[in-house]
Structure formats: structure tokens, C-alpha cells
Amino acid sequence: MTEIGIPVIIVSGLGLLFGLLLSYASKKFEVKPDEKIEIIRGLLPGANCGACGFTGCDLYAEAVAGGAGINLCPVGGMDLAEKLAEIMGKETAACEKYIARVMCKGTWDNVSIKYDYDGIVDCRAAAQMAGGPSSCIYGCEGMGSCKKVCLFGAIEVENGLARIIEEKCAGCGKCIAECPKGIIKMVPARSEYSVSCSNHEKGAVARKNCKVACIACQRCVKECPENAITIVDYCAVIDPGKCVNCGKCILVCPTGAISKYTGYQ
């Protein structure tokens, strides 16, 4: 009996001793979690989209409690920034709402089809095959890879073109990272006009591949009273910081590459 009893007593006794020591130490050296983190976490939208630059809402809550910027969450926007400012005792920082916008109008009506794509329904897979089935290698492929990653159901694909429902877009930027063509851009939500084309080929080629391509004719550049439009690599770009939503550019565009979006405050 003692042959078994003594080892059992010794080992379990040691275990008990260490257990008691540890529980005493954990009480004595306890680190109280910051209450603010819990409160802030409750306020955050919980989309875990990562647009703030932190991996998920939990880490952002910790970072805010540790002094990070309070206006980094595009999903919560201004309302959230104000609430966080109150908790952290900080000044409310300006929080410009950004949304994503697909800079392409290449529906199947506007572009021609190079070949019948029959592979995986994924933009990156399609892009591997001679730049995708669309005649414009810069344009949207309409496979909806961006739609799949959108956590907010803000992307629709119609007739081979992804379109972002601007009221639903939270500006997390997941679709931008997903798009193999890099044609989704962040713009301030208040901006109403964008050049919806990303074609960087010379005018004639661009026009041949897509009916509504920007041909870099410079007319909008000359028309713009705010000098907000520049031509970058044969494609016009509106600087939303300078744009006053006057809409003069859309009137002179010969191809219809500039579009009016809903935009909202």
C-alpha cells in the first residue's frame, strides 16, 4: 500500500502546494484589465473589417484605450468618433467619410468580348488569362471577387461590371485589396463626380476597346474651374480634394467616361 501511497501523496502534495502558490501569486500580482477597453469595444461596430489598420475591433479598442486615433473607424464614422472622444477625453477630430468606387464603366454593352471565359468564377483567375475576357485589360471583369469579400453587401455585379452601392459602403477597403486590376479607389463620400475609367492606353486604342473609355482629350481639364482634373498616363483623374461638384466636366466629356454618382454627406 505504501508503495503506491507515498508517491501519490508526494506528487499530489507538490501539485497542491504549487497550485496554492500560483493562485496566491495571481491574486497578489493581478493586472486589472482596462475598463475603457470593454466600453470602447462595445461601441465599435464589430465588423472586424480592418479598415482602421488594426486586426479587428478588439485590437483597435485596445489601441484607442492606449492613445491611438479615435477617428480611424470608417464604419462608425463621425458618430463613433464623437463618442470615443467623450470617453477618452479628447478633442473630436475631423472624420471624413470615405467610400470605395469602381473606376470603370465597362459593361458587356460597352466592351467587346475577347473569348468565352469558362474557368473559375474569380477575377484573379480570369485576369491570368490574357488579362481577362473583356477587350479592355484595365477594366472590370465582373466575376465579383470584390462582392465576395464585401462584409456590408454593398457591391452588386450587373452585366459584367461591379457597382458599389454608396449608401451601404463603409469604406473598409477590402474590395480594393481584392481587385486584381486595381480599379477600385477610395473617394470622399461627398464627392459626386469621378472619371470612371482606368484605361491607360492612348485614346484611339482605348476607344477601340471600350465605348466609354477616357481618351485623354483634355476637354474636362480645360473646363474645370477649380483645376481639379489632371491627365495621368492617358487617363483623366479628378482630385476630390479640389472638386466642388459643379458638374461641368460631365457636360464636355465626349465619350461619357465621367459619371455622376450619388455621393452623400
Binding site: 506528487v11 504549487f18 497550485g19 500560483l22 501569486a25 495571481s26 500580482f29 493586472v31
Partner: peptide, 16 residues
């Protein structure tokens, strides 16, 4: 057992 308990102890102390 001894090492595990010690490491736990070091962890608690470091955290604090």
C-alpha cells in the same frame, strides 16, 4: 511539475 509552476509564476510576475 516544478518547472511548469515556476514558468507560470514568472509569467504572472512579468505581466505585472
Amino acid at each position: 511539475l516544478v518547472i511548469a509552476a515556476l514558468v507560470q509564476f514568472v509569467e504572472i510576475v512579468l505581466k505585472r
